[in-house]
Amino acid sequence: MRSIGAARALVIHRRKLPSGPDAGFEDVQPEELNVQPKVRLRGARLFGRSARPSDPAPSRLSYRYQRWMLTPGIRLGVRLGLPMVVLAGTLGMYFAAEDRREAVSAYVSDLRRSIQERPEFMVNLMAIDGAGTGLAQDIREVVPLDFPLSSWDLDVEQIRDLIAGLDPVKSATVRIRPGGILQVDVVERQPIIVWRTRNGIELLDETGAHVDTIAARSDHADLPLIAGAGADAHVGEALEILKTSRSLGERVRGLVRIGERRWDLVLDRGQRIMLPVDRPVRALERVLAVNEVQDLLERDVAVVDMRLGQRPTIRMTKAASEDWWNTKVTVGNGQ
């Protein structure tokens, strides 16, 4: 007989034994078998959560609220927007007071300082490689750093630009080496030519850049000499000409830039080879060829004018031309 109605009896709840095809009764531990039945009074749940009517309908308000909360935009707003607004509001209220702002910024800068001044980040000395003593002195003057210094405060780029801005420095690399050393590697400019101007005597490198100022030409007697305004802008051309004129040996005194457009090669005994604006080396080669054959420059010639390529001209010295006149007169009256 099956019971339908509610019996007012104590209901015995027993822990469920494992059952089904996989359950083996030998697996069951004996203490699990003699569980004490739990006794509960029926109707206790009248006071519990399920004491509400059996088929509760949501109130209109809760229904609307739930639908509202299921709307995607609203859900996003509640899940992301609301926390962000609360966070922003809290932060804003906290930082509204001046002294709190200052305290926080002081704390942050303190923290920053303490990290930056750790010994791992400190730079203790500057090492300069590839520079002579005078240049190294100059570099140390230009970059006045008082070590020790945190590497966070060093602007390596700026130091490099500063050093590279020095005249005798061709290029420079600056880096912070492990061990707290500021390593400066410098390539010096090599003086290759002497430039005499009205203001003094300068040393130039192969690009025409200023290297140094010297007191006397004789300090660098081994270097060739150039002169004239604007000569430093054409050092390359001057070097070419001088290379070509090597066969003249000791006779070459120097090059003079004339009118900032062409060169004069000056030899000893006041001789001068005036070179054209275009292809001066070629013109010089022609002169040297004539010299080879006819010993042109050994004669009493003051100027070899090569400015017009079609019409090379020679100016003789005064004595030579007088001589020549005399010869001509003799010949003329010789009849």
């Binding site: 088929d55 509760p56 309908a57 949501p58 209109r60 229904y63 739930q66 639908r67 299921l70 709307t71 995607p72």
Partner: peptide, 18 residues
């Protein structure tokens, strides 16, 4: 209306969408 609301609210809740 209350019954429709009940059913619809439960189904919406299960679907997790309005």
């Amino acid at each position: 209306e209350r019954a429709i609301r009940t059913a619809l609210q439960a189904a919406q809740k299960m679907a997790d969408i309005r």
